[in-house]
Amino acid sequence: MPRPAIKVRPELAICEHCDSVHRRLPLERGEAADCKVCGATLYRRPMLDLDAMLALAAAALIVFVLANAAPLVTMESGGTTTRGWLLTLVATTWTSGVGAVSAIVIGTVFLFPLAQITLYFYVLLACRLKLPAPQFVNAMHWLRRLRPWSMVQVFLIGTLVSIIKMSHLASVQPEPGLWAFGVLTILLTALGTFELRELWVLREEAQQA
């Protein structure tokens, strides 16, 4: 069934928070345009270019592997040493009868961040190399949906709180996995500053060229 073509107005921007219409202005690198009606950010030009973002995504992938391969903390008490990896957290909460907590941890700290990094890598590579990338549209949608559910930074603070709580009960040592989660938090935050909406524009430009 033929669909009537919808007229698009790429020279305009509409604030998603208050529905006010603005004319798009060219921005310098690192600048953001705020809505003059409600103060929300309308659009921004990222500080980093595609190559730098790709490098960040690759680094995040490596750090993600490290963060999960290395233990987060060790605890010594009464001659026994307990090590905690992220995935042991998932397993122990599962076997302790709180499956929902286990699902929240594996989703928000493992699966969603991993999916986020991989999808970022895919869409950035597609834009950079001007590849056809058949799943580009789906990848972009999933990136947008996953964003609020990726909670590495919250997990990091939660872990620190827990470590300090336990430190008067037993000797608790932070391990490399914890540092890796710290670095991952920074890398994911940097990746998050890249506006997905700008990637759509970049993608269109790449396809036209």
Partner: peptide, 30 residues
């Protein structure tokens, strides 16, 4: 929105590490 999840993560780690057999134990609750 997501910062309140902090306590959930803190509990998950506590439960994982505090397993001293019969001497001390921490179990999550509903």
């Amino acid at each position: 929105g997501h910062w309140s999840m902090l306590d959930v993560f803190a509990v998950a780690l506590l439960v994982t590490l505090v397993h001293f057999g019969s001497l001390a134990n921490v179990e999550p609750d509903s």
